[in-house]
Design a protein around this nucleic acid. Structure first.
Length: 347
DNA sequence: TCGAATT
């Protein structure tokens, strides 16, 4: 019977081509029929008649076929569509599943919402009918007090409209709030109102102003450990030791704030080229000793290096030697400036 | 020219 069920969804899933059911669009040349196989949401007002679900927080690697298979275990799926980046083609981590029968849709919510898949916990809920109004209604909020939880957040924002989702980001290790959150409103106009009223404001009972802005569009996947395409070994290893004399105190990163394993001595690198990536920093500094962390500072929009970065080395001596050897290093037509990080702006 | 958070 499991076998029979598998056959059933395999059949469904094979019939479902990459382009889903967009054939329902007669002119076929619309630019954005993303979410719109709920176009016949005739029972929009009747929750008992709804069949179309939105599935969020899917694992990156999950295909449309797998999405379909998963939901076919509940009942007959009419269409399943995984939303992908239009240009890169990678999954955006959500999709739509339209059931034939409303009761199956409801059961899917009850049985699959909250399911753990890979490192994700998927969310299954009814999809709202597609419309322009509901697009771009997602806000990114930063500068929140760490004491503010999801409920406090919603209390602060709910007067602007119907909140579809909200989330306070937490540090994986400590479990503490990162002071950053998302709120998706039902309508873009509601989100605009919230920005208008709350951006730059200091919420009652708190001391710092918050930033409220539209969230950036989901970005493409970032490269983890970069390609080895970079010049292989142009940096000498440790050459000699140097007595420790410095004009200012090097930053010894204790803990808190940074990623795991990033304790050590923080080095500032300036004049990096736009295409610098993390692997270059690893390769540059690796030969001098243990590198705990590297960071290329990028423009959020273009994702290009803004010309500087940081490297944390575990041992002071290694850091000093690396600085001595790499400062003044010529990279392309740039001359790198390498030094211990200062606390510009804070002292 | 000395970090900022994107479910």
């Amino acid at each position: 019977m499991a076998h029979r069920q598998r056959q059933r969804y395999l059949k469904v899933c094979e019939v479902q081509p990459t382009h889903g059911d967009e054939d329902s669009n007669e002119d076929g040349s619309e630019k954005h029929h993303r979410n719109d196989f709920d176009e016949h949401q005739m029972m929009e007002d009747d929750p008992n008649g709804r069949t179309n679900l939105i599935v969020n927080y899917l694992p990156q690697c999950m295909s449309q076929e797998e999405l379909c298979s998963l939901f076919s275990s509940v009942g007959e799926v009419q269409t399943a569509k995984l939303i992908r980046d239009k240009v890169a083609g990678n999954s955006l981590g959500y999709g739509f599943v339209n059931f034939v029968n409303p009761n199956d849709a409801e059961r899917a919510i009850n049985t699959l919402n909250g399911l753990r898949l890979q490192s994700k916990t998927i969310k299954v809920s009814y999809a709202r009918p597609s419309s322009d109004q509901i697009k771009d209604a997602n806000l990114y909020i930063s500068g929140l007090p760490r004491t503010m939880g999801q409920q406090d957040l919603e209390d602060l924002f709910s007067r602007f409209g119907r909140i579809i989702t909200s989330r306070v980001l937490v540090d994986q290790a400590s479990g503490h709030s990162r002071g950053v959150a998302f709120i998706r409103f039902d309508k873009r106009s509601e989100a605009e109102d919230a920005i208008e009223s709350l951006n730059g404001q200091t919420p009652p009972g708190t001391s710092e102003p918050i930033t409220v802005k539209f969230a950036a569009a989901p970005n493409q996947t970032k490269n983890q450990m970069g390609s080895q395409s970079y010049q292989s070994r142009r940096f000498g290893g440790p050459v000699h030791h140097q007595s420790q004399r410095f004009r200012y105190s090097p930053i010894n990163v204790g803990h808190g704030g940074g990623a795991e394993g990033s304790n050590g001595w923080c080095i500032f690198i300036y004049n990096l080229t736009q295409d610098t990536d993390e692997s270059m920093l690893w390769q540059m500094f690796g030969p001098f000793g243990a590198v705990a962390n590297v960071k290329v500072i990028r423009d959020f929009k273009t994702n290009k290096c803004k010309g500087f970065g940081f490297v944390t080395m575990s041992n002071y001596e290694d850091a000093a030697v690396a600085i001595h050897n790499l400062n003044g290093y010529r990279m392309g037509d740039k001359v790198l400036q390498v030094s211990f990080k200062t606390n510009k702006g804070y002292n």
